[in-house]
């Protein structure tokens, strides 16, 4: 993290991520908001690369940019034009106060704490190490995640299936 390239990359990616996240909040059209959210996800993937987390960056692009944003787009498209408005509720002012408080507290604590930072380079390559630990140390959570995904997909299909609701 010493050379100029990674510093410039960090600031550019941070500006991209935060800028498009703010634009998601401000913009009125929900479709454009989802597209800007994709940009924010891509910025986070780039930040993973600057942290030398190659596998997680690829997973981020595949799942967030590829799958979750398409799900969000589907949900926006399948609901009518009347509900494509991205406005705030009456809860806006308390939400701004609470959000500012949370951002201030977390930033202050994380800047104030004396982290025991390890002086070392980035990871050489994480994919093989993650794969080995998924099938060795974390094999039980791995299987549970598989079951959870199966149940969630089945549940989503059953929920939106038209016949499922009419039969009852």
């Amino acid at each position: 993290m010493e050379d100029t390239g990674s510093i410039v990359a960090f600031w550019l990616l941070a500006a991209l991520t935060l800028g498009s996240a703010l634009a998601v909040v401000v913009i009125r059209d929900l479709i454009r908001a989802v597209v800007l959210l994709i940009t924010s996800f891509l910025g986070v993937a780039g930040l993973y690369i600057t942290l030398s987390a190659d596998f997680v960056a690829v997973v981020q692009v595949l799942i967030y940019v590829g799958a979750i944003s398409v799900l969000l787009l589907f949900a926006v498209m399948l609901t009518p034009r009347a509900s494509r408005d991205n406005a705030e509720t009456f809860f806006q002012i308390p939400a701004i106060l609470l959000t500012g408080l949370v951002a201030f507290t977390i930033s202050l604590v994380s800047l104030d704490t004396d982290w025991t930072v390890v002086e070392r380079g980035g990871f050489e390559e994480t994919a093989s190490a993650i794969g080995e630990s998924l099938l060795d140390k974390y094999v039980l959570p791995f299987e549970m995640a598989a079951v959870l995904l199966l149940v969630a997909m089945l549940g989503a299909i059953v929920l939106v299936h038209p016949e499922g609701t009419e039969e009852e």
Binding site: T17, L18, A21, L22, V24, V25, L30, A33, V34, V44, L72, A75, V76, T79, S83, R84, D85, N86, A87, E88, T89, F91, Q92, P94, A95, I96, L98, T99, G100, V102, A103, I106, S107, S110
Partner: peptide
């Protein structure tokens, strides 16, 4: 922290469920 705060604001104050 900033990104979390933006997400928290959206989750609390957005009217649309997708938001």
């Amino acid at each position: 922290a900033l990104l979390f705060a933006i997400g928290l604001y959206m989750a609390l104050a957005k009217r649309n469920f997708v938001g």
